[in-house]
Amino acid sequence: MGLLSKKDTKLITDPLADNNPITIQVLGICSALAITAELEASIVMSISVLFVMGVGNVVISLMRNIIPSKIRIIAQLIVVATLVIIVDLVLKAFAYELSKTLSVFVGLIITNCIIMGRFEAFALGNGPWRSFLDGIGNALGYAVILIIVGFFRELLGSGTLLGIPVLGDPIEKTGLYAFGYENNGFMLLSPMALIVVGIIIWVQRTRNKALVED
C-alpha cells in the first residue's frame, strides 16, 4: 500500500460499512431502489455511479477555489449532468436493452443525493486525490448495498442470477423446485426493495450497537 497512506485507506473502507452512504448517511436512496429487481441492472447502475462520483469529485475539487459559493449548487449540477449525459450515451450505444430497463433512473443519477452530498461535504474542502478516493469509497458503499439487494430480489423473485437460472427450472420442476419450492413474485415488486434495505439496516445495526439510534 505504498500509494495509500493509512488515512487514505480509511477514506475507501469507511463508507463500505460503518459510514455507508445508504444505510447510515441516508443518501442516494432515490435512484437506488427502483432498479434492483435484477442483479445486472444493479451492477450497471453501480458502475455508472462509480464513474460519475470518481470523476465528478475530482473535477469539483479542482474547481473548488473558483466556484463562487452562492451559485455552487448550479455549478455542481452542471458538472454532474455532463458526466451523466456521457454515461447515458455510452449505455445507449453499448447496452441498449439495459438502458431501456434503467429508463429515467440514469438521468436521476444527477440528483442522487450521494453525489451532491459528497461534493458539499468533501470535494469542496479537499484536494483532488483525496476527493477521488472519497468518491470511489462512497460509490463502492452504494454499490455494495445495491448488489446485495439486487442479489436477493433476483434470487428469491425469479430464481435466477444475472439471468441464469440457479435454482433449477420452475416449469420442469428440477432442482429446488422438485421439492415444492416456489418463486416469490412479490420480491420483484418495488415495495420489497424498501423492506430488504430495512432488513439490511437491521442486521447491520444489530452487529454494531454503536450505530443504533435513540
Binding site: T23, W202, R205
Partner: peptide, 23 residues
C-alpha cells in the same frame, strides 16, 4: 421497536408496507 430497527430501519419497513397498500 427493537433497538436496532429504531429510526431509519423501521421507517424503511413502514414505507414498504405503505407502498404495498398503495399498489
Amino acid at each position: 421497536v427493537p433497538p436496532a430497527l429504531r429510526g431509519l430501519g423501521i421507517t424503511f419497513i413502514i414505507t414498504g408496507l405503505m407502498a404495498i397498500g398503495f399498489m
